[in-house]
């Protein structure tokens, strides 16, 4: 047994790096999936809406931990090859993020008055142009506070990746705690690091919300 040292703190920082890598990857891929789901869920074609909705219900009805296990243990089975744990957890977190972002953005899209679609359509713009130039900018503004709020959830949520051995911040903490038996100290530091990242984001989300509500 040894006491907590600078080496452990360096390990935490390294773990934090992987937490951030996972967050960025999940947010990017999840964002793409979310945008797709939001568009499908607001499609004019009913069967497309139903399919997107079914996928969403399925994922939302499964605990994140189960989703993580499913991809970590399932991907080697389905693909027939070992996959790096980063890939497995990225897939799981991307799907998780995609479903939540998709719902947030769908709400944003639907909060834009339908007459905006009509006005844009009446000018001879295609459905895609109507979305990109008229609907999306307004929907994004509406969804921004909730999107940042979800980002905070995602950052904290990535700690679950520790259970499949992916060495992010929480896992780095577990390792140090096992070596030093200074659990309280270790996890206090880990919690402080999460807080230091999430708190400013939460504040930002709040100020966005206040600003957007203020200007209507």
């Amino acid at each position: 047994m040894r006491t907590l040292s600078l080496v452990d703190l360096m390990a935490f920082l390294e773990g934090l790096q992987w937490t951030l890598v996972l967050v960025v990857l999940s947010f990017v891929f999840g964002g793409l999936l979310g945008l797709t789901l939001a568009l499908l869920r607001t499609s004019n074609v009913a069967p497309i809406r139903w399919m997107a909705s079914a996928f969403l219900q399925l994922v939302q009805g499964v605990p994140l931990l189960a989703l993580l296990m499913f991809f970590y243990f399932g991907m080697p089975v389905f693909l027939g090859v070992e996959v790096p744990s980063l890939m497995a957890v990225t897939v799981a977190f991307s799907i998780y993020s995609g479903v939540f972002l998709g719902e947030i953005w769908r709400g944003g899209i639907q909060a834009v008055k339908y007459t905006q679609w009509e006005a844009a359509a009446s000018l001879g713009l295609s459905r895609w142009e109507q979305f990109v130039f008229v609907i999306a900018p307004q929907a994004l503004k509406i969804s921004l506070p909730a999107t940042v709020g979800f980002l905070v959830q995602l950052i904290k949520g990535t700690s679950l990746a520790s259970v499949v051995g992916f060495v992010e911040l929480t896992r780095a903490g577990q390792i140090a705690s096992a070596a030093t038996f200074q659990q309280l100290l270790v996890y206090s530091i880990i919690a402080a690091i999460y807080f230091a990242i999430c708190f400013p984001l939460t504040q930002w989300s709040r100020s966005l919300e206040a600003r957007l509500n203020g200007t209507g």
Binding site: T115, Q116, E118, A119, S122, L123, G124, P137, Q138, K141
Partner: peptide, 16 residues
Amino acid sequence: RQKVGIVFQAFNLFPH
């Protein structure tokens, strides 16, 4: 539609 303009009761300008 590019040749037929329509003006609505509620204006429907793009606020952004």
